[in-house]
Write a protein that binds this DNA or RNA. Structure first.
Lengths: 250, 250
DNA sequence: TACAGCGTGCCGTGTCACGGCACAAGTCTT
DNA sequence: AAGACTTGTGCCGTGACACGGCACGCTGTA
């Protein structure tokens, strides 16, 4: 147990800091060198890490993680179905398009298509998004049961920027507005310079299975473009929802 | 050690067969139920798997693997640089574009952009490609040292289809041709109905760091399109190579 | 030359992984 | 309707192996 936990944590740390050596890793994990060393050779024999070319004492993650990472997005269908729609959306907007899914109360970024414009928003895939301070998160929350929302609210609403929503009442009002409007917005509520518009993809069970967003540097976002992007993400999310239904249905 | 190996193997199996329960998993891994059960709870407390919605006894992989899986590809540099070029290539060809990298003697599919056409080639990301029977593999082999090539040849050349190259001499001749031509081809050598054209991306050290390919159903591939795609992938690979150099240099 | 950092190997102690077994709950036969 | 299965889960004695302090060889630096 402890052994496995250490090994898995080591794997994550290697992924985050690669290429990295035993001593650095031990410091980062606050574990004795010996333990880290054992974890590394174990991960190596399992084929999850390899030594970096040239420096055989630095470790990197292998592509094995890709395999399982990809199946993590689960529903092979979701990504493959959503990507073409996202590409169309990106073509329309020429802005960065994100696909996020709810997972155990967290919102996780699954796929991303970038704008061609020089000022970009780059978030790593697998990134956790704050549900109350991101367009994708709010779109999904707005489509969730009140029970889900209250569970999330009960954990507390962190403040990230000056515009973050931290009051539960304000958030509930915002979610009602989103339900009426059809799409969610984010005006620098998580990071000052990032604004976005998002709409939830509703699965056959009526629950939100994903969310599609258009992400724009706050400096480029205007009321007009926000409305236009809102209509676009709504249509895209609905299309993905329909495609998902027909895919699983036939 | 054994414990960790079991847990990691369980993780892979879950990823491959999700959603799956304890008994099925135990059968698949040929391990006692108790051991598999322990591995599952460990993976769960580590946050790598979660129970599928609705059926709390079926397990699925979480997005945690996405995180580490993505950093495996050297996310920041290669993928982000290559994807825009690949998009341009897909725009030109309207065929499926693949990005593969060499890793420990294997060729691994890292990224994929699909054609809009109805007949498509779908390979899972993270897929291992045979180096001697795929366009990407041959392109990378042709750009590798003769030592690397001979090491690979020594492991034997499997036959997949009627056109597979299984004779070492034939392979060496083909690689020479590829070097002269600038791009590699694949005419149903791995799977009958898949043909492709690929060119290697050469890193600053002079070694191949990746390969970009255009993949086409054999039925759609003609000599003319093969030549056109060849020129296109060559240009794309060279552009990525230059971008990589300027990225790391400045 | 002394030193600090590195990666690696050794080893005694004590923990915890192993896997057989049993049991409750649910599902498919007959 | 009642048995025959299967499935997920918990218990437990034994013994393997993870733990982490320590020491070694090595390299680059003051």
């Amino acid at each position: 147990m402890q052994n496995v936990l250490n090994a898995l944590r080591a794997l994550e740390e290697v992924a985050a800091r690669q290429p990295i050596g035993v001593a650095d890793l031990a410091r980062a994990m606050e574990l004795p060198k010996s333990s880290v060393q054992r974890a590394l050779v174990t991960l190596h024999t399992a084929g999850w890490i390899r030594q970096a070319a040239g420096t055989p004492t630095r470790w990197m993650v292998t592509a094995k993680a890709l395999h399982v990472g990809r199946s993590a997005t689960g529903e092979l269908s979701l990504r493959d179905i959503a990507v073409p729609v996202m590409e169309e959306l990106r073509r329309q907007t020429d802005e960065t398009v994100h696909l996020a899914v709810p997972e155990g109360g967290r919102i996780v970024l699954i796929e991303r298509l970038e704008t061609s414009q020089p000022v970009r928003i780059i978030l790593p895939l697998g990134q956790n998004l704050p549900a109350h301070a991101s367009a994708n998160g709010k779109a999904i929350l707005a489509a969730s049961t009140t029970e889900t929302v209250e569970n999330y609210v009960a954990e507390g609403l962190s403040r990230f920027t000056g515009t973050s929503i931290t009051d539960p009442g304000d958030l509930r009002a915002e979610l009602a507005e989103i339900r009426a409007r059809g799409y969610a917005t984010n005006s620098g509520e998580w990071r000052d310079d990032v604004s976005a518009v998002a709409a939830a993809v509703i699965g056959e069970a009526g629950t939100p299975v994903a969310s599609i967003s258009v992400n724009v540097p706050t400096s480029r976002m205007t009321d007009a473009s926000r409305a236009a992007f809102g209509a676009a993400v709504c249509e895209a999310a609905q299309r993905v929802g329909k495609l998902l239904g027909s895919a699983s249905g036939g």
